[in-house]
Deep mutational scan, measured.
Amino acid sequence: HRQALGERLYPRVQAMQPAFASKITGMLLELSPAQLLLLLASEDSLRARVDEAMELII
């Protein structure tokens, strides 16, 4: 289940942060499945989480 969510998330994360897409997707997969579904449904929520992840990385 998580694998399938990751496969759906990755291209969207890659479009926002290509250099760190794998790392960010891995970080996002730590969230609950319900939270992941919310990110897939909301571009704004996904962008906010990706921005948060980038702050942790750099």
Rank of each mutant, 00 (worst) to 15 (best):
residue 21 A to R: 00
residue 19 A to G: 12
residue 31 L to W: 04
residue 50 V to F: 01
residue 45 S to K: 14
residue 12 R to M: 15
residue 51 D to G: 08
residue 25 T to N: 03
residue 13 V to S: 01
residue 34 A to K: 11
residue 35 Q to S: 08
residue 12 R to N: 05
residue 25 T to F: 09
residue 47 R to S: 06
residue 2 R to D: 15
residue 29 L to T: 04
residue 31 L to C: 06
residue 48 A to K: 14
residue 41 A to Y: 07
residue 14 Q to W: 06
residue 47 R to F: 04
residue 15 A to S: 08
residue 40 L to I: 08
residue 54 M to E: 01
residue 55 E to M: 12
residue 46 L to I: 04
residue 32 S to E: 13
residue 10 Y to F: 13
residue 51 D to P: 01
residue 15 A to P: 04
residue 22 S to A: 11
residue 39 L to D: 04
residue 37 L to N: 13
residue 58 I to E: 09
residue 20 F to G: 02
residue 25 T to W: 07
residue 45 S to I: 13
residue 54 M to N: 02
residue 14 Q to S: 11
residue 37 L to K: 09
residue 30 E to G: 08
residue 22 S to P: 07
residue 13 V to T: 01
residue 18 P to H: 04
residue 48 A to F: 09
residue 8 R to E: 15
residue 13 V to L: 05
residue 32 S to V: 06
residue 26 G to C: 07
residue 52 E to C: 08
residue 44 D to Y: 03
residue 38 L to F: 10
residue 2 R to Q: 14
residue 32 S to Y: 06
residue 55 E to G: 11
residue 56 L to I: 10
residue 21 A to V: 05
residue 37 L to Y: 10
residue 52 E to P: 00
residue 37 L to Q: 10
residue 49 R to N: 05
residue 36 L to C: 04
residue 48 A to W: 05
residue 35 Q to W: 05
residue 8 R to S: 13
residue 14 Q to V: 13
residue 46 L to S: 00
residue 58 I to C: 06
residue 25 T to A: 05
residue 13 V to G: 02
residue 15 A to T: 07
residue 55 E to R: 14
residue 11 P to A: 13
residue 35 Q to T: 10
residue 48 A to D: 07
residue 48 A to L: 12
residue 46 L to E: 00
residue 19 A to Q: 12
residue 45 S to C: 07
residue 58 I to S: 10
residue 18 P to K: 03
residue 31 L to F: 08
residue 21 A to G: 05
residue 49 R to M: 12
residue 15 A to L: 10
residue 6 G to K: 12
residue 24 I to M: 00
residue 38 L to Q: 15
residue 54 M to Y: 11
residue 9 L to S: 01
residue 26 G to N: 15
residue 28 L to M: 04
residue 39 L to A: 09
residue 12 R to F: 14
residue 7 E to R: 08
residue 16 M to D: 02
residue 1 H to N: 14
residue 27 M to G: 01
residue 45 S to D: 14
residue 27 M to V: 05
residue 30 E to Y: 06
residue 14 Q to M: 07
residue 5 L to C: 05
residue 33 P to F: 11
residue 37 L to H: 10
residue 39 L to I: 12
residue 21 A to C: 02
residue 6 G to C: 10
residue 44 D to L: 04
residue 55 E to T: 12
residue 32 S to W: 06
residue 5 L to H: 04
residue 31 L to V: 03
residue 20 F to R: 02
residue 24 I to R: 00
residue 35 Q to A: 13
residue 17 Q to I: 14
residue 39 L to W: 02
residue 11 P to T: 13
residue 16 M to W: 07
residue 15 A to H: 09
residue 18 P to D: 04
residue 40 L to N: 01
residue 16 M to S: 03
residue 9 L to F: 04
residue 45 S to G: 09
residue 39 L to E: 03
residue 22 S to Y: 14
residue 1 H to W: 03
residue 7 E to L: 04
residue 19 A to D: 13
residue 57 I to H: 02
residue 4 A to R: 09
residue 28 L to C: 01
residue 46 L to M: 04
residue 25 T to L: 13
residue 29 L to D: 01
residue 10 Y to I: 04
residue 9 L to M: 05
residue 48 A to I: 12
residue 53 A to K: 05
residue 17 Q to T: 08
residue 41 A to C: 07
residue 50 V to P: 00
residue 42 S to E: 09
residue 2 R to W: 05
residue 46 L to C: 02
residue 42 S to V: 06
residue 51 D to K: 14
residue 18 P to G: 05
residue 49 R to H: 11
residue 26 G to K: 14
residue 52 E to K: 11
residue 39 L to F: 04
residue 32 S to Q: 10
residue 26 G to Y: 10
residue 50 V to D: 00
residue 37 L to E: 15
residue 2 R to I: 15
residue 55 E to Q: 15
residue 39 L to H: 02
residue 49 R to W: 14
residue 52 E to Y: 08
residue 14 Q to C: 08
residue 16 M to Q: 07
residue 52 E to D: 08
residue 11 P to D: 15
residue 30 E to Q: 09
residue 46 L to Q: 00
residue 30 E to C: 07
residue 35 Q to Y: 13
residue 17 Q to F: 13
residue 23 K to L: 12
residue 5 L to S: 03
residue 8 R to H: 10
residue 20 F to S: 03
residue 53 A to N: 03
residue 27 M to D: 02
residue 31 L to N: 04
residue 15 A to E: 14
residue 34 A to N: 12
residue 4 A to E: 15
residue 11 P to M: 08
residue 10 Y to V: 03
residue 39 L to K: 00
residue 44 D to C: 06
residue 38 L to K: 10
residue 33 P to T: 12
residue 49 R to D: 02
residue 26 G to R: 11
residue 30 E to D: 09
residue 11 P to Q: 14
residue 23 K to E: 14
residue 9 L to A: 02
residue 45 S to T: 08
residue 43 E to G: 05
residue 10 Y to D: 02
residue 38 L to A: 13
residue 12 R to H: 10
residue 25 T to E: 01
residue 32 S to R: 05
residue 11 P to E: 14
residue 16 M to N: 03
residue 48 A to T: 09
residue 47 R to L: 05
residue 20 F to D: 04
residue 7 E to A: 10
residue 8 R to M: 13
residue 33 P to E: 15
residue 2 R to S: 12
residue 31 L to H: 05
residue 17 Q to S: 10
residue 51 D to Y: 10
residue 35 Q to G: 06
residue 34 A to C: 06
residue 10 Y to R: 06
residue 37 L to S: 09
residue 17 Q to R: 06
residue 48 A to N: 09
